[in-house]
Design a protein around this nucleic acid. Structure first.
Lengths: 180, 180
DNA sequence: TAATGATGTTTATTAAAGTATACATATGTC
DNA sequence: GACATATGTATACTTTAATAAACATCATTA
């Protein structure tokens, strides 16, 4: 996060051939703090960000947006997980939510017969479920669907919904939660 | 600025029927701090904003954007002004730059014969000049234009440009500076 | 009516953001 | 080579963001 700021500020400053003193004068933010920010070692307040954006005549987005390409590994070893249905329904967070991205990815393991029910999420949540292995019945509101290996279902999460493993083997799902 | 945050956070929290304790648990930000933020009495750090956005599953923009309608008076009495050409060329800031808006508005007063030259601004600046009273010659790069009362000229500010009052009376301009 | 629980506010403390100053390092210039 | 200027870095200090815990307020229920 402060990485973005660090990168963007330094980039803009150098594009304009300005020194830290120049920026300090233009924005009213101290040189020391600007240096910290550019090194990604600072955690500035909104008022500081405002002063920088205003002084540099740029928008927030151009300050906060991530540089460009990512190359980021999420290890399954680090994946947090939550159990339901007495440990027979297990949810692993693969990619956690990120305000820039707007969605998150889970892996779900369901023992034979395992079951989970979710209350309606907040408005504007869309669920995308893919069956990696096994099969499952997904219900949302009045709708029901049997999904087999390779099948994917998309539905609105703002209604109560259920996941059930109807097969005799372990079922594995990938679940993408997209927030409006 | 923290006004926006205050408004949006409270709105989202209430829409979802959550208490401050709920949000504190979901975001990892203390209840006291959340209360301060909602009252607009806080100046949170980016990491705090990140925690709120991530925990609430919302984007930055939805947290930082201004509520809706404004109703804001900028008094000419408060307008900062800068003089050039020995006080015969006067610039008044009417609406200061604001990162959300992306542009700013100036009033310029030029005594007869008054003159001002600007070096090239940073890339992506667009100037829009309207003659309120009198007349002026605007030059930008190789181009020249005589503007009379009611005329407006739009040009890129990333080249050296000049303003000159060629009339016998006080000339008044409105200048909008739009940043990319 | 007292008690319980849930919610927001206030207060005291700690951790860190922000500033100002001095320091180091380079790059000319006489 | 000494001096001056400009630029980024490190240090000491002040202010304040953030936390945790106690407190106030209100509703619901026994």
């Amino acid at each position: 996060m402060s990485r973005n700021l660090a990168f963007q500020l330094k980039k803009i400053r150098q594009q304009r051939h300005l020194s830290l003193d120049d920026v300090a004068k233009a924005t009213g933010v101290s040189k020391a703090q600007l240096a910290q920010i550019e090194k990604g070692e600072a955690n500035p307040t909104v008022s500081t960000i405002w002063k920088i954006a205003a002084g540099m005549r740029i928008s927030f987005s151009s300050l906060l947006q991530s540089p460009t390409a990512h190359f980021m590994k999420y290890s399954s070893k680090d994946a947090l997980h939550v159990d339901e249905d007495e440990g027979r329904y297990r949810v692993y967070s693969i990619i956690p939510y990120n305000p820039e991205r707007g969605w998150e990815l889970y892996k779900i393991e369901m023992e034979p017969g395992a079951f989970s029910r979710s209350e309606a999420h907040t408005e504007g949540v869309e669920e995308t479920v893919t069956v990696i292995q096994g099969q499952a019945i997904i219900s949302a509101g009045e709708m029901h669907e049997l999904l087999e290996e390779g099948d994917t279902l998309v539905f609105s999460g703002h209604q109560p919904h259920e996941y059930k493993n109807t097969s005799e083997k372990l079922t594995i799902l990938h679940l993408i939660l997209q927030y409006k």
